[in-house]
């Protein structure tokens, strides 16, 4: 399918990508071409008798033993963060203030 610039802006919003107008203009035909290529998968007859594959081995419900073990320390985890405050990740306002 061909993606319009409006659709590109919609997907960019979902993906949290602040694209410039130039990027949107360039991406619309590029993404359309890639999707058109990828849509060849639709030519394959694959009904309900064909299970999707996500792993070549049938693994199910892989869980570890429910026991305490050491993880990273708080300082190790926070060391890579761009902004911290009071031993937490600091982020800008998420919820708009109520009027």
């Amino acid at each position: 399918m061909a993606l319009s610039e409006a659709e590109v802006r919609h997907v960019a919003r979902l993906a949290r990508l602040a694209l410039t107008d130039d990027e949107v203009a360039a991406l619309a035909p590029q993404l359309s071409k890639i999707l058109e290529y990828a849509e060849q998968v639709g030519e394959v007859a694959a009904g309900d008798d064909v299970e999707p594959t996500v792993h070549p081995f049938a693994l199910a419900n892989v869980v570890r033993a429910d026991e305490r073990r050491d993880g990273l320390t708080r300082d190790e985890v926070l060391a890579g963060a761009p902004a911290t405050e009071a031993d937490r990740f600091a982020v800008p306002r998420i919820v708009a203030e109520e009027g």
Binding site: A38, V41, G42, V44, A46, V50, E51, P52, T53, V54
Partner: peptide, 11 residues
């Protein structure tokens, strides 16, 4: 898309 592609993967 993803489901169909994952079935192609099975085939």
């Amino acid at each position: 898309y993803y489901l169909q592609a994952s079935k192609v993967r099975t085939l």
